[in-house]
Amino acid sequence: MAIKVNSPGLATSVQDLGRPGYYHLGIPISGGMDRFALRAANMLVGNDEGAAVLEAVFLGPELEFTQDAMVAVTGADLPPKVDGDPRATWTSFAIRAGQVLSFEYLKGGARAYIAVSGGIDVPLALGSRSTYTLGALGGFEGRNLLAGDELPVGAAPAAAEGRVVPAELRRMPGSPAELRAMPGLYWHRITEASRRGFFEDTWKVALEADRIGYRFQNGHPLEFVDREPPFGAGSDPSNIVDSCYPYGSIQVPGGTEPIVLHRDAVSGGGYFMIGTVISADMDLIGQLQPHTPTRFVSVDMAAALAARHDRRALLDKIRSALD
């Protein structure tokens, strides 16, 4: 035992870089929604970048440490405190046995990543420590943390105190948030006017926004191209014969409110999709609060790969800055 959960926050879970390889059985990849911030947090405390951390949503937990450790909090602007004394985000700080880590109210973003030197040492489930709550799999007993839980921490040499990710190397969504997406999948099902409108509208993050997917509101309803419903699809124009859903895919049930599937995605279903948010921008979705104005920006494969390259280059810069 090394961390005692005094209060769990809103929905704090153990996450790493996920559990690939089981999507064909409906088990999603899971892992940190903002993997950029997760990696940076681990780098700051000297862990492997894929070590398990805590992902806290909107409200931080209160954690009592029973052993010394190095800690870093990245992602959302959720200011940490040690025994009530403020600490900086995106910066490593020491915590001693008996001290309590707590948080101020959220100032920006949505999800903070709390890395502890040694990593959260829950058992591996299908090769990952990530929590998949819908399947009660992985993490701490397959669920979000509760008061009274005792989290094991791995043994590892910690990095130094006061290591900082420079402000220009942090990555957070702007306002309005811009999510780059590649049109495709069932894009041909909507009219020319709706194709333009989808990318012109400013959407707003709905309250139904979690690890499975983010719902958006306030855009124009999509208009469909007429068709004879294919056998097995269902009569609604937004229905298809149940198919796989890509991570980041944008489904629009009934043509009204787009849902972007995230790390705990349902792996398939019967709603058509108009495209997919590119891999480089998946991190940003994890930092969107409800009501955040959001625009989708149409890009092609070349732009998606360039953005993927840029994201990796930014992580490389953090690695060099911390070396």
């Binding site: 699809a233 014969v241 198919s243 890509p246 991570y247 997919t276 948010v277």
Partner: peptide
């Protein structure tokens, strides 16, 4: 169809 930069989606047929 590409599903973003990480997926290839193959619709074998529209109907089941």
């Amino acid at each position: 169809s590409f599903g973003g930069d990480e997926h290839i989606f193959v619709e074998v047929d529209e109907e089941m």
